[in-house]
Structure formats: structure tokens, C-alpha cells
């Protein structure tokens, strides 16, 4: 299942520049709001679910090479954060749903 399917299935909004999401296949999911845990625990190509929206998440995502960040509960990153993400090739997605619900939904569509 590719990232375009995920975006459609979970009705995620894309905050960063549009691109060919169907070419990206996320490897799994990882949920944490603690940057140090994400650095230590997430795998390359995973979807990172968090409600953190500040600048540091872009650096962490670039470093760990996650497929995309799913920012939950409508937390709004500032425009500088979005610009930085575009610059670093990090995809930011957004949803009004909670982290718990997004994890559950991803699990249900097969991301283990």
C-alpha cells in the first residue's frame, strides 16, 4: 500500500508541496511525541504519528528518514516549519483525529 492510499483512506491533509505519493511505500508506523524516542526507535520509511508541530520535528524526520509525519489533533505547524519541511524533503500530513485513532486506522489497513 502506498502513501497516496494512506492519505485517501485516512483522509489526511497534505501540508507540504504536492508530489507523487503513490511512489512512496511506508514500511510501518511509529507513534511518539518525544523526539529522543523517535530518534532512537523509529525505522526508516515509517509513518511517524505525533501531535508535535514545532520546528524540531522536521530535523528529526530528516535525520531518521521517515516516509512522512502525520500531525494529529489539528496541531498547526507554523509556516516556517512547513517551509523548512519542503526544503528538507519531509512530508507533513495533518488530521483532526487523535494519535490513538490514526494508529488504529493504520493498523487496520495493514501497517504492522
Amino acid at each position: 500500500m502506498n502513501l497516496q492510499h494512506v492519505i485517501d483512506a485516512l483522509q489526511l491533509s497534505v501540508l507540504t508541496e504536492a508530489r507523487d505519493f503513490s511512489a512512496i511505500s511506508p514500511s510501518g508506523g511509529y507513534a511518539s511525541d518525544l523526539l529522543s524516542c523517535v530518534m532512537a526507535g523509529t525505522k526508516k520509511g515509517a509513518l511517524w504519528i505525533t501531535l508535535q508541530a514545532h520546528m524540531n520535528i522536521v530535523a528529526v524526520a530528516a535525520l531518521t528518514e521517515v516516509a512522512a509525519i502525520v500531525i494529529t489533533e489539528n496541531a498547526q505547524p507554523e509556516s516556517a516549519v512547513i517551509a523548512k519541511a519542503d526544503e528538507q524533503n519531509v512530508i507533513l500530513l495533518s488530521t483532526p483525529k487523535t494519535s490513538y485513532e490514526i494508529c488504529g486506522a493504520l493498523w487496520e489497513i495493514g501497517f504492522r
Binding site: 511525541d33 518525544l34 523526539l35 529522543s36 501531535l51 508535535q52 508541530a53 514545532h54 496541531a75 498547526q76 505547524p77 507554523e78
Partner: peptide, 19 residues
Amino acid sequence: QPGYSTASDQIRAMGFGAG
């Protein structure tokens, strides 16, 4: 403003200071 914070990384690591 939601998300505005001056908290240190140490405080964020405790689960606080998310603004």
C-alpha cells in the same frame, strides 16, 4: 498561541512545555 513554548528540551522530554 497554541504551540508557542519557551520550554527546554529537558522539560519537553518530561512531556511538558508543548505550548
